[in-house]
Amino acid sequence: MTVESLEALVDEYLRVIVRTRPWKRRREGESLSLLVRWADSHSRGLAADMEAGENALADRCATDLGLDAAARDDLGAAVRNLNHWAGARGYLDFDQRSSAPALRGSTRR
């Protein structure tokens, strides 16, 4: 997954959350914005971090950013939810060399 596609994924996720769980948008949006900004500065190692799993990804991001325990928990929950949603939608199953094609593509899944 490229950094651009992660940003696209987060953005689309927040658009969904605002329709089904609008009360979570602000908190998850803040956490996932941190993740995107962090990923932007760690693009070279991002693929490996993601392969290590959602918890490892959130941990590394939280450690690098020096988040406190509460913010770390929020980030972990947000990343898990994002991953769950993206997996269910089939958004993680695409050509990793291109820029978020799944988000631009078919209405049928």
């Binding site: 996720y13 969904v16 959350i17 329709r19 089904t20 769980r21 929950a77 898990r80 939810n81 769950h84 949603w85 269910a88 939608r89 209405t107 049928r108 899944r109």
Partner: peptide, 28 residues
């Protein structure tokens, strides 16, 4: 317009609305 999440289950992390008998292609 946005019709995708109605049939998804209500999960702990939650994004679906948990409607049963919902077929996505019948909407949109």
């Amino acid at each position: 317009e946005n019709v995708d999440e109605y049939g998804d289950p209500v999960t702990p992390g939650g994004f679906g609305l948990g409607w049963s008998e919902y077929t996505r292609e019948h909407h949109g």
